Computed example of a mutant assay.
Amino acid sequence: MNNNFNPKTPDLEGVRYFSYGASLDPTFFSIFRPSHNIIKRLEGALNDGLVSVPSSKWGDYKGTLIGVSHLDLINWTNRVKWLFWSLTGKKRKFNGVAFYLDIADMLAKEGL
């Protein structure tokens, strides 16, 4: 990204950029456990299973979401997991739809 994509994709004058990062500690059975460990080993950084927190920072960095995977961020939820959690009384920690609605609200308040 630093050597190829970023130099060919400059920021545009007059455009405001916002970003968030995410990190999780994947469980033993998590699909992201192998990739999380590779990113942690190579970059020594928190990550969401696919993107490290330092790599996610661009423009006005709004913060790091803790306990959130890359699939959570794109709202590709594991409905079986949520069903199991609801049956055992465990609460869902991250709601992708609500997160993006909050971002839309923030942008509207900024006049964007």
Rank of each mutant, 00 (worst) to 15 (best):
K91M: 05
G49D: 03
V97T: 14
G89H: 03
W85A: 07
F28K: 12
N47T: 03
G59H: 04
N37V: 00
I38Q: 05
I39Y: 00
G59I: 01
V53M: 01
R92F: 07
L65V: 01
R41D: 07
R16C: 08
G44F: 10
W76N: 08
T9V: 11
N6E: 12
R41K: 14
F94C: 06
F5L: 12
Y61W: 09
L46F: 05
N6Y: 11
G14I: 02
L71E: 11
L101T: 13
A45G: 06
N78V: 03
N78D: 15
D48P: 08
D102H: 10
V68D: 00
N6P: 02
S86K: 10
W76C: 06
E13C: 05
F29I: 15
F94G: 05
A45E: 02
W82R: 13
T88H: 01
Y17I: 07
K57A: 02
W82K: 09
K57V: 00
L71W: 06
G59R: 07
I31V: 14
V15W: 02
S52M: 00
L12T: 10
I39E: 01
V80E: 13
Y20I: 01
S52A: 02
G59K: 08
K57G: 03
L107E: 11
Y100S: 06
N3E: 14
A98Y: 09
G67F: 07
K62G: 05
E43I: 07
E43P: 00
S52C: 02
T27M: 12
K8E: 08
S55H: 09
L50F: 11
V53K: 00
L101E: 15
K81E: 13
H36G: 02
D102K: 14
K109M: 11
K93G: 09
E43T: 12
N47Y: 05
Y61N: 10
D60N: 15
